[in-house]
């Protein structure tokens, strides 16, 4: 793989496939991407998570040289975005796949293959890879949205790139299509190929990605593996004397880790090994508290994402597994890469 990367892209081993440094894009007085620092390592499937309008597509467009950053710097495969050195190893699909409507899927790929001096035999291979061989000779304008998405992925794969950049690849797909696409992307990223995938769908990112970054308002708010992002586990304790129980538990684990919500005591831990439920249960019972239910509740990526992007957890304490920035760009630079 290193040979492949070096030969085809000029990047050297140990370097990031994508690296941005304070990347910023302003549209008039609106900041779309705000001092973004990204590092995508070789061979990983990297998720780029953010709400609509968070700046995901703008970032990807800058990484492909389609738009110029207002300030900051980006490097893709060791080269400036949009240059031949950078693009030669990158396959991409940005937003909706764009092809000539009157040409067939095969002819559209033929055009791209000839532009990139790719052997024409690759066309059949990638069409088969995305399961589009049967409709390859039909005009693009007759394709369903799912088929268009698959042709977009086929086009991205045409050059056998070392880096795949996919922007919302499951957009418009039905559940079966989404599942197929997830399997395909996971497969594509299973070897040495690096995949950068943007999405606002948590399950998609959760199931596909090795590492994830979350952006909001154009700024990076968190980065880490899915497990690391979800690490804030909660021990839920249902008791009959909730105020007494809260006081006892707070005395044991610290006031800041205990909360009451919907009549249930919630004890937050960085990981499940931090708190021993049986020990807590014994202490409560010893104090005459009747414990009706006690179970772990792992935070879903969705709840973590909502917390991050709504700012609720952005004041979270530093030193936790994931350190959250408060969205201001001065502090967003302090985002921990866990």
């Amino acid at each position: 793989m290193e040979d492949r990367v070096n030969k085809r892209s000029g990047s050297s081993p140990g370097r990031y496939m994508i690296e941005t440094d304070q990347l910023t894009k302003w549209y008039g007085d609106i900041v779309a991407v705000d001092h973004l620092d990204l590092r995508v390592r070789q061979g990983e499937v990297y998720g780029f998570l953010g709400a609509n309008g968070a700046g995901k597509t703008t970032t990807l467009r800058m990484l492909l040289g389609l738009i110029q950053p207002t300030s900051g710097r980006a490097s893709v495969l060791g080269a400036k975005p949009g240059t031949e050195e950078s693009l030669m190893g990158v396959g991409s699909m940005i937003e909706t796949p764009a092809f000539y409507p009157h040409l067939s899927g095969r002819h559209n790929l033929m055009m791209l293959a000839k532009y990139t001096s790719t052997p024409l035999k690759r066309i059949d291979q990638v069409l088969a890879q995305v399961d589009l061989s049967k409709r390859a000779d039909d005009a693009f304008q007759t394709y369903s949205l799912g088929m268009k998405q698959r042709l977009g992925v086929a086009a991205a794969l045409l050059k056998d790139p070392v880096l795949l950049v996919l922007d919302e690849p499951t957009n418009g797909l039905d559940p079966a299509g989404m599942a197929d696409m997830r399997v395909l992307i996971r497969k594509l990223g299973s070897g040495d190929r690096t995949v950068l995938i943007s999405s606002h769908l948590m399950t998609e990112i959760e199931q596909i990605c090795d590492r994830v970054c979350v952006i909001a308002g154009g700024s990076l708010v968190a980065e880490g593996t899915v497990d690391e992002l979800r690490r804030k586990d909660r021990l839920l304790i249902r008791v009959d004397q909730i105020e007494d129980a809260r006081r006892i538990v707070a005395g044991l684990v610290g006031e800041q880790s205990v909360a009451v919500s919907s009549g249930v005591l919630q004890v937050t831990a960085s990981n499940q090994g931090e708190i021993e439920p049986a020990w807590l249960n014994a202490r409560l019972v010893a104090q005459g508290i009747s414990v009706q239910e006690l179970r772990w509740d792992r935070a879903s990526l969705e709840s973590v994402f909502l917390d991050l992007t709504s700012g609720q957890l952005r004041q979270g304490k530093r030193g936790q597994s994931v350190i959250y920035a408060n969205g201001q760009h001065q502090e967003s630079r302090e985002v921990a890469h866990v």
């Binding site: 791209l112 532009y115 050059k159």
Partner: peptide
């Protein structure tokens, strides 16, 4: 209009 320049510009040639 078709946005196909986007597709072409993200291929190898400049």
């Amino acid at each position: 209009g078709w946005d196909t320049l986007k597709t072409l510009f993200t291929q190898r040639p400049g």
